[in-house]
Design a binder for these strands. Sequence first.
RNA 1: GGACGGCUAGCUCAGUUGGUUAGAGCGACUGGUUUACACCCAGUAGGUCACAGGUUCGAGUCCUGUGCCGUCCACCA
Length: 910
Amino acid sequence: MEKAYQPKEVEDRLYEAWEKEGSFRGKADPDKPAYSIVIPPPNVTGVLTMGHVLNNTIQDLLARRARQKGFGVLWLPGTDHAGIATQTKVEQQLRAEGKSKLELGREGFIEHAKQWRDKHGGIILKQLRKLGCSCDWERTVHTLDPGYSRAVLEAFVRLFENGYVYRGKRMVNWCPASLTALSDEEVVMKPQSGKLYKVRYELIDSPGEYLLVSTTRPETIMGDVALAIHPQDERWPSLQGRKVRRPLQPAEIPIIADRAVDKNFGTGMLKITPAHDRLDFEIGQRHELPVIDLFNPDGTLNESAGPEFCGLDRFDARSKSVEKLRSQGDLLEEENHDNNVGFSERADVPIEPRLSEQWFLRYPRVEEAKRAVEDGFIRYFPDRWSKTYLHWLDNIQDWCISRQLWWGHRIPVWYRKGRSRSDPRNWHVSVDGPSDPENWEQDEDVLDTWASSWLWPIATLGWPDDLMMKEQGLDYFYPTSALVTGPDIIFFWVARMIMAGLEFRGDSIDAKTTLTDEQIRRRIPFRDVYFTGIIRDAKGRKMSKSLGNSPDPLDLIDKYGADGLRHGIMSIAPKGQDIRFSEERIEQGRNFCNKLWNVSRFRRMADEEGVASESTLESIIQRMDSKHLKQDDHAILLRLVQTLDEASRLYDEYEFNATLQSIYRFFWNDLCDWYVENSKARMREGEGKDTCLAVVDLCLRQVLLLLHPVTPFITEELWKVLGYSEGRSIQWTNPGSGKELLAALESWEIRPDPSALEEMLAIRELVTSLRALKAERNLATNNKVEFFYLASDEKSKLLDRYRSSVLNSVGAGSLNRVQEAPAGMPALVTAFGSVYLDLASALDPNAERDRLSKELDHLDRIISSIESKLRNVAFTQKAPAQVVEGAKRQLSNNLAKKREIEEALAALPR
RNA sequence: GGACGGCUAGCUCAGUUGGUUAGAGCGACUGGUUUACACCCAGUAGGUCACAGGUUCGAGUCCUGUGCCGUCCACCA
């Protein structure tokens, strides 16, 4: 074995072997309980980020643990076509080649995009293999696959038939960069510091008299169709019904009154531009006002804006309109003003409210979606996200699902040629289209990407095709067991998947009929949802490409190994809290693997032949001879039992960083630093050698099993190297519970002594104190140091049993009992008693006095606090007896310590 | 304007239902290469648990308020 663990060769070799053996294949096996996860499909053209590493490590961990526990496991991978994102990329690349999508035409563009996707896409899936992800790659799904596409269209048609989908002319969020409508969720509000302009409008019937209006968007004045005041605004009792002159594109427009106007904002007077503001549009509807659309789709102004403005970009138009108003004397004031502006999430440009005809979805099963989470059919980890989820559902708005793009699922609606598209009588809605296609033309738009990915858990398992569902094992794997994703897509994806599952799984149920509990239980797409945190850099900033603060996971794998990366990331990932990334933690993950490697190496060096045999749990236990079991053996076995239970509990609670901490403590502190260190002599020779090695084997074997979900490669490798494999991969062996281990030990007449743990802790504290006495005086290399101790008979007896191992681990010549504090020796007071270092020379009495005085002060503070507590009648009467007893014991211990320190102090030479 | 999360050692974080003297890793400092591991071992220093009240015999932990940091939701021109 190499001196240091070399992950590269091991990882590639093992991954290949696992794939070849079909370890990851998800098969419906009626003899096993099912465990399934569907991957949150990354963008097909995406590359692996630290976020993916976190997310997918957790999923892999869950899948691998389930495999160990004997479940029929499926982790289903795939990619998302990512409509806008991909189309934008392809267009950019075309532009770089000097081509445009219009030249290619729809068919040509899609063909081109597909080629581009096939060439550059799917990289991320290869990268996930490097991470060790145990996905069933044979079942990889892409959202534009024929089967999946059919599911998307089928869902649309069913929703249409059930009255959930409708077409309407409405205000939508328009992205002038991507030239498409967006859903409300794709708009992010950003605070902007802009200007608030005060503009005057002249009253027609009273020339020279003006009304003042505050606006942030002077470039839309040409589209004003009215001014509005609040009906109860007593400042202007008689304005209603009169008219003003619009200062740009002059025209006479009426003054109206509407409750939606805020009397207290600006001048209390609102200009109404129905085509370019949501509120204005609503007011316009109420008052039957006309709509003047000033903008082209790309955000430039059109003819309605007048010749001066036509063709200008909206922001140029803004400055130009300000200039013009100023020159006309209509601009009275200009002040700084901070407000929130909606930006397109993808293109990062301000969105434009725009009136257009689009397809909308009224969400199905909203009430049941709430119940599913409220009543615990679906559990959120951490639970607090359920509040965010429920709040969104309470205020849910219809979903604009049509996108003016080419890359995606084309809406399965056909319009009769030459007839009005607004009239449903001219529509044909079906998956396969009309039988006389020559008389129809298909809707040009595609569906929002999320209107395909919301079917992910059900459509990847074959829905809606009966045969496919059977083949893919939908009945077996659905509902999936866990979903691992970020809280940022709780609305985009999680909530919508729940509604889709409730609506589409099983028989179609009338919209008016509420689902029963049993139906909800069967239809939900997943049972547990684990929300990860967001990975931030060391300064707490979000990782992003533009900041360049995101390390490349593949570089990290190269440097620290996939296991190191996985271990590192899992050790810093508290449940649902944001994560500060630091490469040091990944380094620690690598170090951990190396430690595991080296202790295994040491184990082999102790007895190469013993390792060669295929050792099962039973055969390891049978190598233990209870005659040769020492207290240290009992103690480490008890710690192993504890750790098995603790780690298992923490795994089940999704507390992965705590899980690793628990395993770490056992493995590093208890096993390596204490047990192995103290057993080196036994491991080499003598009667107890076999027993001792068997204990080490048992501990190592269980540690490997516990760690396998987190660090699959090194554990599999050592599993074989150490001879625990019985020819089988570690993947299929369950670490088992502490209770099961105890039972196995018991069947071989091994019953760990419960008092051994406590003894070990006491001895460890003693050893630490003795080491400290030496270390503080730089005596680390001196093995002949003599110690004395002052302690009770009982403690003295205990020490006699451990003396040699204590001397050995401290590196000391002797440790003898005295009846009173020896003069002039540095001392430490432990739970065990006082220990003294015999050091005639090189002692600085003053330094020693300082140290002891400090200790004494500290003790005095503790003692007086306990005393006052015990003097308090309320405490002694109300606190539970054991707490009071504990305090008393604590007091007497500390008083004893104090006496001993005082003695030691008195014994110091002046 | 609402809602949620965070504030504990220089840094990153643990701290289960209130109960003996608040922990770990990293970093700092001291010492160590007797054949598992310097990706290691031994040890030391370092904390008014953000602040202010309250409940309680007892508060890092529960309640109220304040501050700062972060996230989400919200049509104020």
